[in-house]
Design a protein around this nucleic acid. Structure first.
Lengths: 246, 246
DNA sequence: ATTATAAATTATAAATGCAAAATTCAATGC
DNA sequence: GCATTGAATTTTGCATTTATAATTTATAAT
């Protein structure tokens, strides 16, 4: 999720043939920068957002920063306490469950639509990703695997050809991203996850919408369980690249 | 969707036992007021949002208003053109299709979860609504029917017991609301719609998650078709209460 | 008369200023 | 020694101001 300017709701790809040159506004860039800080965990969950400090760091005044805070709060990444400042949303196990439940539903919907709508080229692209992901698994490259895994999920949603759905998915993924990074993926679960992905891929190849949807739903749900079960276990200290859940 | 303050994402019901008294901030109230103006159609689609005028009307300065504009843009209700002002999003047929497609998926998910989770009391409440809706239908009270119909859909989602899902649904409903008001509901389609609701109700009573989900999905999808097909036909001139789609 | 250009006007973006609320911390009382 | 109260400090919310971009209007040239 990114720019608020121009066509609210739709995000980054502002390349639209007839779109005016559209320099982005300062507040829009700040929103993106701040969102990354939160999603990537540079601003830790539960931490207070240091307004004055950020202004100095970014070299801007409080106005555009505060506008960004309002937007990020509406996305659920920050909490605004009137007269008391902004805080990075501390995700609760319950909320994490809810988020994954919704994500699983969104991806089921996406997989069903993708099975019907995607082109042969789309399918080939997905096949390539799947292959690279399996290679990363066999090479034991957890970070690379995580990256590719995220791309697979995003791609499936993209292939549903519904921008509204993609935007919602992107927002939800941002909210769970930090938790995902820190979740522990056991060797057994990792293998299982790879298998589940292969099964989804197969169903998509067969253009079996119902099966693809059901499989990806179950897969995401299990991922959610893994993430929730390892939530809170010294989350912050964990080295980002080493331990991930997919 | 409403207040940005305090727990981003979660909305109106700020009643939480230990919650601080929490007067809301000005910008938060403005956001809500403005959102209503857009959703209810007092600010017409494609129309420019008159910043200065609104400031005078609401008796506030530009700062909180502009913060509200940013938030509403991120919700997809407004478009911000840098250095050129804010405009009420003009919904395209394509986007309307996408919105209804997502809503149908969201409600399927909700119905499936509700079938499993709702209490006997929840079910009774739904039954009452259904009954009142049918009475409104037989009495030919279109506006009343529309109102109750919206409540049924919102209730089903609420009974899924997932706040994240509810928030998403609320946001989507706000975006299509104007279009729905203006869509033409033929007597035949109206009857059919009532029947579909009865079928969904029956499936929920039987706690048949899959069937309830499939039925509500189809119902919403059809509603979407009706709305899209009557989009653009002198949308603005139509008397609100007279012609609605459900 | 029509178009192009430039000046004037208007509106937006961002910075600054000010008042009010919350937090901090020290002093006082128990 | 601990809790409580109140002043000092900090921070936030909102208004105002300043600067910059866009639009309109007027003028001039073809």
């Amino acid at each position: 999720m990114t720019s608020v300017e121009k066509s609210g709701g739709k995000r980054r790809p502002r390349a639209k043939s007839a779109a005016p040159i559209a320099r982005r506004s300062l507040h829009d860039e700040v929103t993106e920068r701040l969102r990354d800080l939160v999603v990537e965990g540079d601003l830790a969950a539960g931490q207070r957002v240091p307004e004055a400090e950020l202004c100095k760091t970014l070299g801007i005044s409080r106005t555009p920063l505060r506008e960004a805070l309002k937007v990020l709060a509406s996305e659920g990444l920050l909490e605004l306490h009137p007269n008391r400042g902004a805080w990075v949303t501390r995700i609760t196990p319950q909320e994490l469950d809810e988020l994954f439940e919704v994500i699983s539903g969104v991806e089921r919907m996406a997989a069903e639509l993708a099975a019907k709508r995607m082109s042969a080229k789309d399918l080939q692209g997905l096949r390539d990703l799947q292959e690279r992901m399996e290679r990363a698994f066999h090479a034991g490259l957890r970070h690379e695997y995580f990256r590719l895994n995220q791309r697979v999920h995003t791609s499936v949603v993209a292939m549903a050809g519904n921008a509204v759905l993609s935007a919602i998915h992107e927002g939800l993924m941002a909210r769970v991203r930090r938790a995902r990074y820190h979740a522990i993926l056991s060797p057994e679960r990792w293998q299982e996850s790879v298998n589940e992905h292969a099964a989804v891929q197969a169903a998509l190849e067969a253009r079996d919408a119902t099966r693809a949807g059901a499989l990806i739903l179950r897969h995401v749900r299990k991922t959610g369980e893994v993430v929730r079960n390892t939530l809170g276990e010294d989350a912050e200290a964990t080295d980002k690249g080493a331990i991930v859940a997919s």
